[in-house]
Design a protein around this nucleic acid. Sequence first.
RNA 1: GGCCCUAUCGUCUAGUGGUAGGACAACGCCCUUUCACGGCGUAAACAGGGGUUCAAUUCCCCUUGGGGCUACCA
Length: 471
Amino acid sequence: MEVRVRFAPSPTGFLHIGGVRTALFNWLFARHEGGKFIVRIEDTDKQRSEKRFEEDVLKNLEWLGLASDEPIVRQSERLDIYERTLKKLFEEKRVYFCFCSTEELEAEYEAQLSQGLVPKYSGKCRALSPAAAAEKLRANPGVVRFKMAEKTVAFTDMIRGKVEFNTGLFGDIIIAKGMREPLYNFASVVDDADMGITHVIRGEEHLSNTPKQMMLQEALGLPTPRYAHLPLILGPDKKKLSKRFLTNSINDYRSQGYLPSALLNFLVLLGWHPTDNREVLTVPEMVEAFSIKRVQKAGAIYNPEKLDWMNSMHIRAMDEKALAEHLASFVPEHWAGDRERLTRAIALVKDRMKNLADFRKEVGFIFELADYKPSMLVWKQATSEKTAERLEHARALLAGDKGSAFPSEGTEAALMQYANEEGRGDVLWPLRVALSGQEASPGPVELLRVLGKRESDTRIGEAIGKLRTEL
RNA sequence: GGCCCUAUCGUCUAGUGGUAGGACAACGCCCUUUCACGGCGUAAACAGGGGUUCAAUUCCCCUUGGGGCUACCA
């Protein structure tokens, strides 16, 4: 039988890190098994669902490469189906209308609690005759309750093994607010069956929903898919992932210059890893090695430092051309247009970038030299005068370069020889600062290579000018 | 409170009935004109208590810690 899984977000907020991980595990499972991954939008809560959130979720899944294999399913477009199913449940007397007010219910729960009892719905409205219910319906919309049988329900979670619940503790749960307003547990069960979902992989917060859904499946004569409940991602404070991270949309990671593959790689390692010790994996490698049975049982803490490291590893693994594409939205247009220089700049800093946004601040000076103080050119105990002389010497050396690739091997050797004679810091430091205008940067020879002969000469000339006017 | 899940370095984790390994982060050294990168190294963990056993981090129980659920949210 074909494996079919789904990712079922409710569009009540931007797509966040936790959602992506759930989507990823579903997607990997589907790909590994050669099955289908389907996105279902759970927008039954009209108050909280917003179209812009749905768009955000879909757009970001696409960016991450986790798009749905089949057309998106929207619960808001399936109200007829839920209504029909609900009618059937009414006919079979598996459900009933309840008209108890929130105040009544609260009072009931308090009373139960004070007697040391487990608070649950008393089942009061079960006794209402269909006629009485119809009468009340005229003034009060009511809610639909499911007659929960009291029994022990057991299932085998693919990650946790056997899990047991006593459904008697739940009471008669509300499954819809009216004939056309289904609630989560009900809509989810109907859709999973309709969509032919074979495996439900979701967050651990749904573990106790599973027995409720199984009871619903039983009442509707629907098959029970296999379940896997993923451990939750915890915040750095070892508590449930805080608002600070949950409200962070994937958009933020995207604009900070994280690569999709790095984000996915980081997330997959939160609760799973391959049998060997590999940590840096391409997406195809993840698919190949993935196994739901190897998923960890305990929650994992979100560690942003490791994400940075992972991103730098993925940046390094990417070739310069592909990186240039990704960089396009992170640099000014005229930089992106100067493809030749952009590629050389990328080669220069690829190994030192943690994210794509770093690129601009790491090598911006290649495109636009910022103003700097002449004193920055002077190495340790050297004088401005001496520094200017050394720069002039170096400049003359470079000007004599006749090779096709600048700087030629001979020029480089001559420069290094001069540096060794004068003191490496005394020559190399001012040269590097003259070329970069920065306290910290890649080395002078690398910079010469990226800037080219003419631009290098201009910059060294400027540096000498700065030193001379200061004297 | 009740139900359920869970427990190895700060973090992600490997692992086995008999020296607890890797990665991130930290620290140190090397490389080096600078900053990174890189290389080498250091520190760092089996939550506690009972069992079972010649022997328990590993198997069992309890406690404790952490988490989830306990909605007319999903």
